[in-house]
Simulated scan of single mutants.
Amino acid sequence: MKTAITLCQVPEAASGPFVLRTHLPEAFATAAALGFDAVELFLPGPDFVSVDEVKSLAEKHDLSIAAIGTGAGWLRHGLSITDPSAEKRGAALEFILSMIHFGGQLGAPAILGSMQGKKVDDESMDHFLSGLHACSQAAAAHVVPFVYEPLNRYETNLFNRLSDAALFIETNDLKNVLLLADLFHMSIEESDIAAALSDAGRHIGHVHFADSNRQAMGFGHTNAAAVISALREIGYPGYLSAEILPLPDPETAARQTISIIRELSAS
């Protein structure tokens, strides 16, 4: 499994679970110096930086782009694909598709997290499914998957558990949609995180490697060894991405993440 660290450029996410927040050149250099394989980008939008500049920074520091977040659409504009307003749903989808195109040029999948919104009426699930289909098709055109993240009950009432989201994907034939297993959200919703990972199996396309308190793994009470064992059993080939609070400070959080992944990988 490969390592990644979150790199945030969205001012509205100042209190969010993102480790590196400095300007892009410095953040890329820091990620490389700390020993990560890739960065996960959380950007204000697709026009914040050119694809060529990101490619140049990635090549300079021998880093891959693990994934592209879309949450700025919610944080900055209050957009979601389940909004009762057709106009706002359209704007949300347009934003997500633009991020899919941005990430696709980098060979990276886009993530649907907070922009999924919530179920507010009988039509919400239809809007959600329609949005997923459109995003799946757009990602497929770039030969990358689209990644959907179940969130905890305090953030959405759509899907909170991996098994329910996996069943929805299968039932609706969403072949190019994979799941993001965020261990922080799972610590709230799953009775057994390792078992949930094993059951979701082939549907898992990305992992947010966070402890139960959303700090670096090892600073809470999640059984990291069981998580790694489950991911090995299902043959997960992707990233363990540190989407975590930068506590007690960004460097300590980053070094703790790398340290525990290396420790568990060697055992």
Rank of each mutant, 00 (worst) to 15 (best):
F146N: 08
D121M: 06
A165V: 08
N152V: 02
R153N: 04
A165D: 10
K119M: 13
L179C: 09
H208A: 07
R161F: 06
A139S: 13
D122G: 15
V143K: 15
D164I: 00
Q105D: 07
C135V: 07
S212E: 11
S191V: 08
G218Y: 02
V120D: 13
P109C: 12
N160K: 03
G220V: 06
H206T: 11
L197H: 04
S136H: 00
V207D: 09
A108K: 09
M115V: 09
F102Y: 14
E155M: 10
D199E: 15
E190R: 03
A138R: 05
I188H: 11
H185E: 07
M186Q: 09
L106T: 13
L183E: 02
S198I: 13
L162T: 02
A196H: 02
I169M: 12
Q105S: 00
Q137S: 03
A110E: 11
D121Y: 12
L162D: 03
A200Q: 10
S163C: 09
M217T: 00
Y154Q: 08
G220N: 10
L106F: 09
E170L: 03
E123T: 13
N176T: 02
H221I: 14
M125R: 13
G117T: 11
D126T: 12
G201D: 12
A110Q: 10
H203S: 15
E189K: 03
L197Q: 04
E155G: 00
F146C: 05
F219Y: 11
A141C: 07
H185A: 09
D211V: 05
S198L: 15
D199N: 11
S124M: 03
N172Y: 00
H127W: 15
D122C: 08
H203I: 12
A110I: 13
C135S: 14
H127M: 09
F168T: 05
G117Y: 01
M217F: 01
Q215I: 03
D211H: 06
E155V: 04
Q116P: 01
N157C: 07
H185D: 07
D121C: 08
I111P: 03
H127E: 14
G131L: 01
S124E: 02
K119N: 12
A140I: 00
A110P: 10
Q137M: 00
T156E: 10
